[in-house]
Design a protein around this nucleic acid. Sequence first.
DNA 1: ACCGAACCGTAACGTACGGTACGCCTCTGC
DNA 2: GCAGAGGCGTACCGTACGTTACGGTTCGGT
Lengths: 214, 214
Amino acid sequence: MLQAGADIDRSETLTERQQAVLDAALRLLVEEGDNLTMTAVARRASCSKETLYKWFGDRDGLLTATVQWQASKVRVAAVDRDRLDLVSLTASLERFASDWLKVISSDTSIALNRVAVGHAGSGKDDLGAVVLQNGRFALARRLKPVLEAGRQAGLLDFEDAETAFRTFFGLVGRDVQIRLLLGDRVELTEATIGGDARRATQQFLALFGATNRP
Amino acid sequence: MLQAGADIDRSETLTERQQAVLDAALRLLVEEGDNLTMTAVARRASCSKETLYKWFGDRDGLLTATVQWQASKVRVAAVDRDRLDLVSLTASLERFASDWLKVISSDTSIALNRVAVGHAGSGKDDLGAVVLQNGRFALARRLKPVLEAGRQAGLLDFEDAETAFRTFFGLVGRDVQIRLLLGDRVELTEATIGGDARRATQQFLALFGATNRP
DNA sequence: ACCGAACCGTAACGTACGGTACGCCTCTGC
DNA sequence: GCAGAGGCGTACCGTACGTTACGGTTCGGT
């Protein structure tokens, strides 16, 4: 974990206009990647560059604000842990897998991860930390309770929730994210995502299902 | 797959001096990331910028040449498929997993993947394709024969070698690569790598071992 | 009606860097 | 010994872009 508090909700402190500007910046980031220019953002958002600098400090500030803004938009509801049987657990896992695949294959996620990876080398900002917090670690925070509940209910068997989660993460994501980030055209239709989610869930249950480990 | 022939061995056409220059560029790429400058490369390599441009065309040419040069250095020997029993298969898989984890956690691999991901957005060059070819796809090419041999020997049971490979890939890599690329400090000692390789191999065998599927 | 703040549009500045030109050195072949 | 090629070092050019400055406009408060 890089930096605590990287996922604070900034949507309170942002006015409507500022959110609109960040939306424009986000759209431009998806189109242009890291070589978006301040002038382009200003033009797209119909605001002046001076305003951009007054609001966000400098280019890096604008970028991190944009990433955090997008992150604050995808807050997802947790799952209820009541009445947990094998079918509901399976459904939850499949849901997580499917949602996750949809996220990482979306244009905005790819664009955001690209710029964050690009910036991770030169430690000017902490885009990487922000993306990690709202990506991989947020998923873990939301999935671990489900895993723990599954263990409590005697459906799952694992020592450490962290390693179990990481295995699930690997089974779901496999090579998809790195291939997408590197520009490979991975065909991810609704159907294939559903199939992959089911397959990953079944594999995970085969590895960590309580019945399979006496 | 992006572009065929992206992994041709250019080490033949490169003179000693050029290789030294590319090594310098590679070292600088690891240190500076994508914001290395042509002047810096020239200074580090003790050569003139004019030479850089004569040899490699432009900045993108230098970058792709550097990536291909590094790729050509990590050509690994394949495994012999004779006398294949469960222990030798297990050893092979563990070896692949361990090697792969060592590669993706190395400084140079992280740096190379970072610039390739960064460039993948704006389609100026095909760094992403090169990295994919010599990374994920090269691994598949080397591992698939082993998997096929395992199936032939009745040790493994799978429909498609590709999906089997991708599962193995996911079990080994999990969240390691994306976390490293995003700047997370993942502790990967020799010991943990060995443990992860063993765990991934056992999980893979649990999923695709012929004995477990009647 | 007036004032000031916020903001837009645009022009201007400074710099960093990709790319090129040129003078000088070194080394190899004749 | 010499000519020419290859290469080093450096100065130079053009441009793109981050950042700043400024005049004009809208708008809420008094």
